[in-house]
Design a protein around this nucleic acid. Structure first.
Lengths: 207, 207
DNA sequence: ACATGTGAACTGCTTCACAGCG
DNA sequence: CGCTGTGAAGCAGTTCACATGT
């Protein structure tokens, strides 16, 4: 299969959200143009995005909402449950563990880790915080798919190395640092500091 | 000035982080190649990024760490204090309000708002949570520069409209929805759901 | 000799425009 | 006729390669 651009995958996520909305309202079909307007893009872009994966529409009519919804879910891989661990039980970790949006889309938190003795053992939103030293042992047995990394910046790279060595192939990083990982491991970063600086730049450099 | 790509600004943020690190260690000069390796890019990319804003290096030598550091801070607009409000005192809002990285880079939280009567009036990390109904009134007086939007998805667009009408020109959105704003208002979104789905896609579609 | 700064070449994403099909 | 699907054109961001300055 041809390599798919990151931006394409992001838009598919977006389309799916709209489709689920339409689905709930009982709409049967939708055109590329309607999807485009909602998503702030163009109809050609929508059709091109979908065309990488097949021909899901009916000419002269548009797309079947339930079918397209199903196909996109399939493409993104939302048909199954993903097993997620959270590494770092700080403020952000806490917010994430309690975030309902995860479970709704099939991302199931199976463990939370920390290194601080005061936190280990404490119960936390139906999870007991585990000792980070158990990471390798647990991972071998429980085979999580995704690790969410919410440790301090200084510790992030070392912890990522452990996660990679433990065999996890997908990481969502919240530390504001650039991480190095082997090519078979996908790392996505959420970097608020960088976004804020982007706003600072926009405010500073406008006509 | 020519329009600067988003990716360029993000890399400048990244370079700045490395430069601050080098500065602390007392290093005097750095080459584009060293910056590139740290940032996972190429030396040509680094030089091109900087060239949009001027010629800061010395041929045959590299860049002065303190000078380049200063110049990038100036470019991004980190020379001043930015006044930030947080709209929505939920879990994410809480994590952000206590996040030290903000203040360190000159983003100063001047107010926190919520609509829930149980939350309003409660003290919170040296801020008292204010009634969202005060938003317009306060904004007229206190002139915040940036609003961080951490309200539920359903409320996000309506709240953004209020924020825009109140005259704020930069918004950092945490709701997993596509927001519409006039072109003179910059909106950046942090969308964990989308990043997670990107990981799901990567795990699903690999050889 | 060495590393910057920058036009030129390249790569890849987006937009166009229209043939194809219901 | 309307809307999809898609090659071709256009555009933007990245990489190359070398002239330039120290």
């Amino acid at each position: 299969m041809k390599r798919i651009a990151d931006s394409t995958v992001r838009r598919l996520s977006l389309y799916l959200r709209f489709l689920e909305d339409f689905e709930q309202r009982g709409l049967e079909t939708i055109s590329s143009d309607e999807l485009a307007q909602r998503g702030g893009t163009t109809s050609a872009q929508v059709r091109k995005d979908l065309s990488f994966f097949g021909s899901f529409g009916k000419r002269g009519l548009g797309y079947s909402v339930p079918e397209l919804s199903r196909r996109i879910r399939e493409i993104i891989g939302l048909g199954r449950e993903w097993r997620v661990i959270i590494v770092g039980a700080g403020k952000i970790g806490a917010a994430l563990a309690q975030y309902q949006g995860f479970a709704q889309r099939g991302f199931h938190i199976v463990a939370v880790y920390d290194s601080s003795p005061e936190k280990i053992g404490r119960s936390w939103n139906s999870q007991t915080i585990r000792d980070i030293r158990q990471l390798e042992h647990d991972t071998a047995r429980e085979k999580p798919d995704i690790a969410v990394l919410t440790v301090p910046s200084e510790a992030a790279q070392a912890m990522l190395d452990r996660i990679v060595k433990a065999g996890i192939k997908a990481v969502l990083n919240f530390a504001p640092v650039q991480l190095q990982a082997p090519p078979d491991v996908t790392v996505k970063s959420v970097n608020m500091a960088m976004e804020l600086e982007g706003l600072s730049f926009a405010l500073t450099n406008r006509d």
